[in-house]
Design a protein around this nucleic acid. Structure first.
Lengths: 137, 137
DNA sequence: ATCTATATTCTACATTTGTAGTATGCAGTT
DNA sequence: AACTGCATACTACAAATGTAGAATATAGAT
């Protein structure tokens, strides 16, 4: 379905994901901005730097050319990362089946009827709204 | 009901999960049974053994007392593991919001209207059926 | 008792990830 | 020039995980 020429989404760890969130939120940011956005995590500066470095090496982040205090920005979108993680997760835990996921999850975790109603609404909307990617099988 | 004794669900890696699947499927199994069930993975025997050992150490698997060719069996249910993984996943990737998950995911990945209908049905059923769990959190 | 095949244990190594100390570079101030 | 602070780099270490070789135990066949 996605052919062989799919952009390879790098794997992003739990803590790294936090850093990415900041970048996705801000679009771009200097180190101090990132640091202060992550203030509550009480990570040492070097820790954050290490993560940025690794994210760069992985191709998830880049530094805008010629910026003095470096401006970091994401090279992969939150959407593609989410999709990637989601597919991996479903494959791993639910045999790749969204249906199985919903069935089990909604049973396991107590979702209130209100929440279920919300989900129903969301799904309904998705259905009616045409997703026009026909792109042949 | 379980008060503070919340059973701690161990973290289970991707490959380890495969081993657990076998155990969940069979209920219990000897090493050779497990091995042959995982045949297609082309893992060396020791690899599988290592995983079993680690799963035991983690408290995810146990050996039935006094069985000659050891009988391994799961100590944690697929359901609780799934719940655990799911919550962690949602927290990590979707800010803990199922709604966000559905919205994004259904948009990102092309779900056919049929699939959406199926999901709708599943959700509807969940709503009407009493879920008599006590609320957790 | 010996051999052999399967069962079980021990040890090892690379990679990924979280975490962080230390060191150096550079710019503005004294 | 020296000092002070932030910016950036280099190095390190432990835990988790995937992967597997080597060694030993043990039961049944010879």
């Amino acid at each position: 379905m996605w052919g062989d020429f799919v952009k390879k989404i790098p794997s992003i760890g739990e803590a790294e994901w936090q850093v990415m969130e900041v970048l996705w939120e801000k679009g771009q940011a200097t180190f101090s901005e990132i640091r202060s956005a992550l203030r509550e995590h009480n990570w040492s500066q070097t820790t954050i730097h290490t993560m940025l470095t690794r994210l760069i090496k992985k191709g998830a982040v880049a530094i805008k050319e010629g910026t003095s205090p470096y401006l970091f920005y994401p090279l992969v979108s939150r959407e593609e990362c989410r999709r990637h993680e989601t597919l991996a997760f479903l494959r791993r835990v639910y045999n790749g089946s969204v249906k199985l996921f919903l069935t089990n999850f909604v049973n396991d975790v107590d979702l209130s009827d209100e929440e279920i109603d919300e989900l129903l609404k969301v799904l309904e909307k998705c259905k009616t709204s045409e997703h026009s990617h026909e792109g042949g099988k």
